[in-house]
Design a protein around this nucleic acid. Structure first.
Length: 495
RNA sequence: GUCCCCAUCGUCUAACGGUUAGGACAUCGCCCUUUCAAGGCGACGACACGAGUUCGAAUCUCGUUGGGGGCACCA
């Protein structure tokens, strides 16, 4: 262990869709592992599937990675010593590698048609052959003969030639321990397709070897593919990296997370109002734990403490409720000023409630607003709705149901009058939450009514709704004139 | 069919042979309270099953059951 190579890890998404939560977690683990070990984090675009990969998806994935705050040291846009970092730009590299394997006798051309292969497979099934892979039909074709057929233009693929005496393949996995695969499971799989493009299992290994990847951290679904990839490393004469296969993320019904379970792509969570730090925190915890007790793991702690031996083997169920809770934790951990200018103000501006320019002059006001909104907002995007009533001047929008319950009932008029009268005696200098509260405090008793009824009425009058932030603070923020005007207006609605 | 992986509260997890099986989310209750939140306190709640090994097993072994994934000229 004393002379370990510097850590190099990669996240290699296929741009066949958006970045989804499972991929995001894989990216997070790779990133955190690199950071925790002073290693290099590489982003590579595995776009060898010509039919499903798109440039647009690539851009979506890069954007999602940036939003998550996962910075990469080498990648398609930043370059690096192993460039290019997009597989479609590396085609000659795969062909060269395949050529070398052909020359050394570790790969051979196969002329079987798909029909022939299908027939062979069916035959294997029919005779209950435990081995249903490729029957190695073309393995022993005479090289000169094979060359003749290639020159004649006969369609062919290239297959890897697995040594007959290879024996069982044992994978040393950082999360699963040793995993053994029976030698007879190995077949001579395709490395170069008829159209000359490389298959995933080949291209990935060629790249991982060329890029000096030391740890392959990826989804569990690749575990069964790993022995074939090991064959490629061995044929290439490259060292086999350490693997770490992490479990899948499941939906609430125990099935692989999919559209049916709701949002699956990172950008949907961004748009739904989650903080990237909170999202990363939640995903990191899905299958990894710091110590079993800590739930809030800021990214700097993650980048310092992440370790493969605390990665869980179990599949994890995605729990939106816990994500919400973590998001709220991150929001309330912000100080009022940070909350005001990073989340609240942008939203108010966006919602058209404020002008960008007027924020500076209203800083004290905004800080007070932040203090009452912060504990009430679970997601970004909820602030505007919570604050709207403060921006409607004398004519606040009245919630019908609230009016019916809080203003239209008997006695409400007297509550409004009493509040109006008491508050009118407060001058502007004393128009603060505390003084307003103190001013109203004794009124319910004097009016021989309950606090609940009295304040509900005043609340509806001031806020237009039975549900609102604290009344005194709201009125302070509304200002004396507006508060009094709203009471005047409410009087006309009373029963 | 075959190969591989997985198995602790509803959910995420801690435990690395000896614990009253711990924490967090959710749920429920109480407190605070002028509504809604937030906060405080508490309750509920798990070692899938069966055999071994051991003085002692959630932990090790085997089997069963249940889930998941691979077996492509997809990644």
């Amino acid at each position: 262990m004393s002379q370990e190579k510097p850590v190099r890890v990669r996240f290699a998404p296929s741009p066949t869709g958006k970045l989804h939560v499972g991929g995001a977690r894989t990216a997070i683990y790779n990133w955190a592992f690199a950071r925790a070990n002073g290693g290099t984090f590489i982003l590579r675009i595995d776009d060898t599937d010509p039919t499903r990969s798109t440039e647009e998806n690539t851009q979506v994935i890069l954007r999602a990675m940036r939003w998550l705050g996962l910075d990469w040291d080498e990648g398609p846009d930043v370059g690096g010593p192993c460039a290019p970092y997009k597989q479609t730009d590396r085609m000659d590299i795969y062909l060269d590698a395949a050529k070398r394997l052909a020359e050394s006798g570790d790969a051979y051309p196969c002329f079987c048609t798909t029909d022939q292969l299908a027939a062979a497979k069916k035959a294997a099934q029919d005779r209950n052959d435990p081995f249903q892979g490729y029957q190695r039909t073309c393995r022993d074709i005479d090289p000169a003969e094979a060359q003749r057929r290639i020159d004649a233009g006969e369609p062919h693929v290239w297959r890897i030639k697995v040594p007959l005496d290879r024996g069982d393949v044992v994978i040393h996995d950082a999360v699963h321990g040793d995993v053994t695969f029976d030698a007879k499971e190995l077949d001579d799989f395709v490395i170069i397709r008829t159209d000359g493009t490389p298959t995933y299992n080949f291209a990935t290994v060629v790249d991982d070897a060329a890029m000096g990847i030391t740890h392959v951290i990826r989804g569990d679904d690749h575990l069964s593919n790993t022995p074939r990839q090991v064959m490629v490393y061995e044929a290439l004469g490259a060292p086999v990296p350490t693997f770490a296969h992490i479990s899948m993320i499941l939906g609430a019904d125990g099935k692989k997370l999919s559209k049916r379970h709701g949002a699956t792509s990172v950008e949907e969570y961004r748009d739904a109002g989650y903080l990237p730090d909170a999202f990363v925190n939640y995903l990191a915890l899905l299958g990894w734990s710091l110590d079993g007790d800590t739930t809030i793991v800021p990214r700097d702690v993650l980048a310092k403490s992440f370790s493969l031996d605390h990665v869980s083997k179990n599949p994890a169920t995605f729990d939106p409720k816990k994500l919400d809770w973590i998001n709220a934790e991150y929001m309330s951990a912000m100080d009022d000023e940070t909350f005001a200018h990073t989340v609240m103000v942008p939203e108010l501006v966006e919602a058209g409630l404020m002008e960008e320019g007027e924020c500076k002059g209203r800083k004290p006001w905004l800080l007070k607003l932040a203090a009452i909104i912060k504990p009430r907002a679970k997601l970004l995007g909820q602030c505007a709705d919570l604050c709207r009533f403060l921006f409607e001047g004398d004519e606040v929008t009245m919630d019908e149901k609230s009016v019916a319950k809080g203003l239209a009932k008997e006695g409400c008029g007297s509550y409004v009058n009493a509040a109006r009268e008491a508050l009118a005696s407060l001058d502007t200098d004393h128009w603060t939450a505390d003084d307003i509260d103190a001013c109203l405090e004794g009124l319910p008793e004097r009016l021989d009514t309950s606090k609940r009824k009295f304040f509900q009425t005043v609340r509806v009058a001031e806020c237009g709704n039975m549900v609102s932030p604290p009344l005194g603070a709201s009125m302070e923020l509304l200002g004396r004139d507006t508060s009094l005007a709203r009471l005047d207006r409410a009087r006309t609605l009373c029963g």
